[in-house]
Simulated scan of single mutants.
Amino acid sequence: MQVSEITQGKKFTLEEVVEFTDLIAEKLDNAIDKVDNINHKTHVLSVNASIEAARAGTFGRPFGIVAANMSELSDETIKITERMRKDTKEILEVGNLIKSQSREYRGNRLSDLALVNIDLIDRNLYERTADVRWWATDGSIVDALTKKTPEAYESVSQRLNVILQAYTVYYDLVLADTEGNIVANGNKEKYSSVNTNVADRKWFTSAIRTKTGSEFGFQPVYRSPLVNNELAITYSAAVRENGDTKGRIIGVLGVIFKWESLSQTIINHTPIGEDEKNHTRICIVDNDGLILADSEGKVLKETLQFDKKTSLLGEKKNYMFTEYAGVPCCIGHALSPGFENYSTGWHSVIIQKLVNSKKSKP
């Protein structure tokens, strides 16, 4: 930044104010150094003049008076430059205070935004756990897995389709028997999953292991082959005999959630200014740093790596200044806070480059 760039009405970030403060202090130091240099020469000249005036005796008295005045001027100049150096030091102290407050403000703001993002995700996904546990007790679902007839499977498919019409956040709802064979799905026109075996899928095995109807199964962000490899999260619940929450398990209901629709909506609506977006990355990651949602679109393709990552992710809410991808950054973080005893356990991370840093300038 140059002083000539300061124009009336322009808005400045705190970092730009600090940069301008440093620039003023630097220019003052340079100016004082020049004055000191000139003053030193003036002092030497006055001393030499005094010596020559003394040698000249009576004829040198006028010259001696001038030399004395020059010496007094030099002494006064020294006092002025000392005061100027003190003022410059105070300017730098103010700049450092602003810099400290700027870092604190930026860090707290990013970690606050990160917390809002992961809280929205927790709240939304909690609803998915409620959905699947409720629907697993639906009469047509219990009836289909009890009768095991083509007519019952067709009837339950229609019921699942009706649910899908009302709950557009899902790609599909699938129903499997205890062997993991899908016997019905709600979106038959788009996805042909019937007769697919899912016995080795995490959402199925975790539901089969549940003890009561109040529990649920889960498979985190992945590309589901049941819905043409779309990014999804699948929640599941055991279907129990007679719909009894403690009854014998007769199958599993899986609800395949449109993860990208939720996550990208939250990321895209994070209140980051237009001037910040090109140097800010917004992510949701798991405990290893694997990217589950990303403003740069690298979901499941990258794991965040930076110095002291474990320390950052180990706290509930915090921020740090460190290098990411070789560039100085502020990284805000928040751990999943949970909602109604449900928590994804994921982390929300916002990485913002320090654009005014010399190392980050092109």
Rank of each mutant, 00 (worst) to 15 (best):
E76A: 13
K147Q: 14
T137Y: 07
L97E: 14
R106K: 13
L115R: 06
L120M: 12
G107H: 02
R109V: 01
V132C: 01
E93R: 04
T149Q: 03
W135Q: 13
L92A: 00
L92W: 02
K148E: 04
T149I: 08
G95V: 01
E151W: 02
L145N: 03
G95A: 07
L113T: 03
I141Q: 12
P150T: 01
L113Y: 08
K86P: 05
W134I: 15
E151A: 05
D131I: 03
M84T: 05
T81E: 02
D122M: 02
E93S: 09
R109K: 09
N108Y: 05
R109D: 02
V94G: 11
D119C: 06
K148N: 02
A130N: 14
K89G: 09
V94P: 10
S74G: 15
K148V: 11
N96I: 02
D87W: 06
D87S: 12
R85G: 00
W134R: 14
T81L: 02
L120K: 10
D75I: 12
T81Y: 00
I141D: 11
V116L: 06
T149G: 05
T77R: 10
D112L: 03
A136R: 03
S74T: 13
S102E: 03
Y105E: 14
W135K: 10
T149F: 02
L113D: 08
K79Q: 12
N117D: 14
A136Q: 03
S140P: 13
S102P: 03
S111V: 04
A152S: 13
L92R: 02
L97A: 15
Q101I: 03
T81Q: 00
E151M: 07
W134N: 15
A114T: 04
D112P: 01
M84D: 07
I141F: 10
L145I: 05
I121M: 06
E82N: 09
D112N: 04
G139K: 14
D87A: 10
W134S: 15
W134H: 15
L92V: 00
D131A: 01
G95P: 04
D122L: 01
Q101N: 13
N108T: 04
S100T: 13
R103Q: 15
K147T: 11
I98V: 01
G139N: 14
S111A: 04
L145D: 04
K79S: 12
D138R: 13
L125Q: 03
R106P: 07
L92M: 06
L115I: 05
K99F: 06
R133E: 07
L120R: 11
K79P: 08
E104S: 10
R123Y: 05
K79Y: 09
L110F: 04
L97G: 14
S140C: 13
L97D: 14
E90L: 12
V132M: 01
V94R: 07
I141T: 08
T81R: 01
L115K: 07
A114L: 05
D112V: 03
K79L: 11
W135C: 06
L110T: 10
N124V: 08
I98S: 01
A114D: 07
S74P: 13
S111F: 02
V142K: 06
D138L: 13
I118Y: 00
L97R: 12
K99R: 09
K148Q: 06
S74Y: 06
L113E: 10
R123N: 07
I98Y: 00
V94L: 12
E93T: 08
K148I: 10
N96Q: 11
D143A: 12
E76D: 15
L125G: 00
